[in-house]
Design a protein around this nucleic acid. Structure first.
Lengths: 274, 274
DNA sequence: CAAATAGTGTCTCTAAGACAATATCAC
DNA sequence: GTGATATTGTCTTAGAGACACTATTTG
């Protein structure tokens, strides 16, 4: 019986052809806009972090943050590391979206991408104040389905508008994958990655899983509802939303006062729903 | 302005450290058992294809079929290719399960695995009759949750029983990931991959998405229900199941006769439910 | 007081679970 | 006829949408 140790000593992976592996991250944040009236609650905007590429290929175009997998880390850790490097903020949560491995997806060669969606709370961004780099910006997201079955992804930052068009290809486990019809000026296949990440985020939010990560420890139910509405692009009656999330949250004794109307009780996420 | 062509010509990915990339596939099939009485409908068994490892590491232990990603193919194509090589059968569908990239998961070195669940119809296996290789066998699957939150995965083939114990780690997009407590004799981290694939398969079956792929073009509703019950490990009242899938199927004019009781109408999958 | 949100209660509608009842065939 | 499944229909219950109504604060 030959020993496993011996076998491994003589074994070399270098004999095989290997791809480069990256993790690309669609980092989402929800920004509370300014109040339009001293009475009204503020609106929300869903934002996505994009980096303007400084080098070839796709030089000058906008892309998702990402980078090569390093020895000794998992793909998920790589995604976390990349987003921390770019924002100096630790994401609250990170969710797998899919693997993108079309052979021609990157002109530099054989590079496969592991896509993640990550959620960053506005609170943490405010604290570290990482809005400095001109080559990293938060774009406002709009993602809608046309009546002909195409999907329109629009990303806006000041006077820059990226307008991608996609078609849903397949659906597995409730998640969709997309084929790019018009990349709208996004680098690589990142339009398809963003669409898949958004579709995954919506599915997660529909189960009230992802929405808490956008907010601080304690929050009003109205704020939580705005998050849900912003992600899902729907509107919900407050009374019904309240009932639906009631099993996921628990009351605190605190109230949010001074908003020009009746104070709202602050809630926190309940660890074990039921 | 420097040209992108120039840049790419001088660019070499070989400078970076790269992992080996594999696709591992949990191939599921549902086998119709023999009738216990000439009147009764037959029972079903959920089966998973395992390969006995001929070489180190984990020599002699059972593992999922899989192999290295080759240049020019996508990870999904690699998974399809591996399963076809092993069974000579083309899977009806293939579903992404997750990426497994713990640095120590493979003693041979830095190897990350893309896991897929694939569904193979009994019909296609019968046609090609690929039950020959002694090192490739279909194991009966049992996957249950203990009352202490652990999960028990039992795989059985003749006198071989593999008994793995796992703990749910996290849940994203309705899918769970698992930590291995006892691998039960399965190679690598394949116990965790199988558990994740089963959890994903159940989620998909719960939406009546995956269940049709186990069956031929036309089928009785009772057969469809047995598939659902086998995967989900539940039992459903026929009248209710019939109502729930009614929007996913359409009638044919054919009937299945000679079963010792009232003939059942054959149905086919409806392309666009509603 | 007015404007706005916070919060409660209730009606309706739909989908799923339970179950009763009938239909139809092979033996 | 008997034993089994096939098929239909109905009662009940749980949850989501709609909406009316009350409560509470700030300017």
């Amino acid at each position: 019986m030959d020993s496993e140790k011996e076998f491994l000593a003589g074994y070399s992976l270098a004999d095989y052809d290997r791809p480069s592996v990256t993790a690309d991250v669609a980092a989402f944040m929800i920004r509370t806009e300014d109040k339009t009236s001293y009475r009204k609650n503020p609106e929300n905007k869903l934002l996505l972090l994009l980096i303007r590429r400084g080098g070839h290929p796709y030089k000058g175009m906008w892309a998702l943050p990402g980078g090569f997998l390093q020895r000794g880390e998992t793909v998920e850790e790589c995604a976390l590391r990349e987003i921390e490097e770019e924002t100096t903020v630790k994401p609250v949560s990170i969710l797998p979206v899919g693997v993108f491995s079309q052979p021609e997806r990157d002109p530099r060669g054989w590079i496969i991408s592991n896509a993640y969606a990550s959620i960053i709370s506005e609170e943490s961004v405010r604290q570290t104040g990482c809005d400095d780099a001109a080559d990293a910006q938060w774009f406002a997201v709009s993602f809608t389905r046309g009546e002909d079955g195409t999907y329109h992804l629009t990303l806006t930052y000041e006077d820059i508008t990226l307008n991608a068009v996609l078609r849903a290809e397949s659906m597995h486990f409730g998640r969709m994958s997309f084929r790019i019809i018009d990349s709208g000026g996004l680098a690589f296949d990142h339009a398809a990655i963003i669409a898949a990440a958004l579709s995954a985020l919506r599915e997660e939010a529909g189960r009230y899983e992802a929405i808490f990560d956008f907010l601080p420890e304690t929050f009003t139910l109205a704020a939580l509802q705005k998050v849900q509405e912003t992600i899902m692009n729907v509107s919900i009656l407050p009374a019904n939303f309240r009932r639906m999330v009631s099993s996921y949250v628990e009351e605190t004794d605190e109230y949010l006062r001074g908003e020009g109307h009746r104070p709202a009780r602050l809630y926190r996420r309940k660890q074990s729903p039921e």
